[in-house]
């Protein structure tokens, strides 16, 4: 906490505030900060409302004449989190999600690194044409693929309505997401920044391609790889449409489906419990974001400049 206060430089801020005069520049500054603050509040409100509601008692929500904007610590109903976890098998959903995220991320890393290496460093017939064809698929709405993929996994018997087994569910959930054109593109761009001389030097020293990839390129590109791992894992955590299509049993679902399906009927929803459940799903994402912002930002700025 002290660190945060120090970072915010409040002392300096008060010092500046005391010297304040109404000049044109100052009025502009006030306007700028007001605008930003207004939108910051707008952006933050859903999070706040979610946390706040998740800590209210149902009685408070339903009997208060007007919803209160604050809960005292002693009145906080942490019990909601417990009942949310009871209401649906979230632990199971989370375990499923983590498992799927792990499998699809490992698959993605292996397939995209080797493909990106081929595109960035190896010289083969049709390379540029193939790369262009891959890039072109990024423009196509994913729904076009989903239709056939759904038919494919049901055709393989991985998503049969009544007889689906857990391994089948896992395959159905992870196989389509074990590679990604965007990540191949992203990694290839990173690999391309590694000077050719390093590759040539390694060739002169008799290093094999695979060893060069493993010992030189992967370590150099590790920040990008970390970015891919984070984005891919977060994608699985928030996946809704595909898991909803291909899981036929309650206990094979992922967290986001679990959350949506547990609180659907508009009548008689325990809002505080629903918000606690939403918090359970949201909180890990926020933590990952705050801790690993740097890596997530890399992916975004790459998308922005090379898109």
């Amino acid at each position: 906490m002290e660190k945060i206060i120090e970072k915010l430089n409040l002392k300096e801020f008060w010092k500046d505030l005391k010297k304040f005069r109404f000049t044109k520049a100052n009025v502009r500054t006030i306007a700028v900060y007001s605008f930003l603050l207004l939108f910051a509040i707008f952006v933050f409100i859903p999070f706040y409302w979610m946390i706040l509601t998740s800590l209210k008692t149902l009685e408070e929500i339903e009997t208060a004449l007007q919803p209160s904007l604050w809960v005292k610590f002693k009145d906080m109903a942490f019990y909601n989190y417990y009942s949310a976890l009871q209401a649906a098998p979230y632990i199971r959903y989370m375990a499923n999600t983590v498992l799927i995220a792990f499998i699809s991320t490992v698959g993605t890393i292996v397939t995209t690194i080797s493909a990106a290496f081929a595109f960035a460093r190896l010289n083969f017939k049709g390379r540029d044409t193939l790369f262009l064809a891959l890039i072109a698929t990024m423009m196509i709405p994913g729904e076009m693929f989903v239709i056939t993929n759904y038919l494919t996994v049901t055709g393989l018997g991985w998503a049969s309505p009544f007889t689906q087994t857990f391994p089948e569910a896992i395959m159905a959930l992870s196989f389509p997401f074990m590679t990604s054109v965007f990540y191949i593109f992203f990694l290839r761009q990173t690999f391309k920044t590694i000077p050719d001389e390093l590759y040539l030097a390694a060739k002169v020293d008799g290093t094999s391609d695979f060893k060069y990839l493993r010992r030189i390129m992967v370590p150099i590109a590790s920040p990008t790889i970390i970015t891919i791992i984070i984005l891919n894992a977060m994608g699985t955590w928030s996946a809704y449409i595909w898991p909803n299509l291909v899981t036929s049993k309650e206990e094979y679902r992922l967290v986001t489906n679990g959350l949506r399906n547990a609180y659907t009927q508009n009548q008689g929803i325990a809002y505080n419990e629903a918000m606690a459940a939403a918090m359970i799903v949201t909180f890990p994402l926020l933590i990952v974001f705050l801790l690993l912002k740097k890596y997530i930002m890399r992916g975004v700025s790459r998308a922005g400049t090379k898109g």
Binding site: L36, L37, F39, A40, V43, F44, P46, F47, W49, M50, T53, M234, W237, S238, Y240, T256, L259, R260, Y263, Y271, A274, M275, A278, M279, V281, T282, L285, L286, V288, F289, L290, K293, I296, M297, V300
Partner: peptide, 22 residues
Amino acid sequence: LQTIFFLPYVTNAIAIGMAFAF
């Protein structure tokens, strides 16, 4: 402020949708 503005990027459309619904 930057951190606050970036927050919605990572969040779950379903969970936040439920918060908005409320």
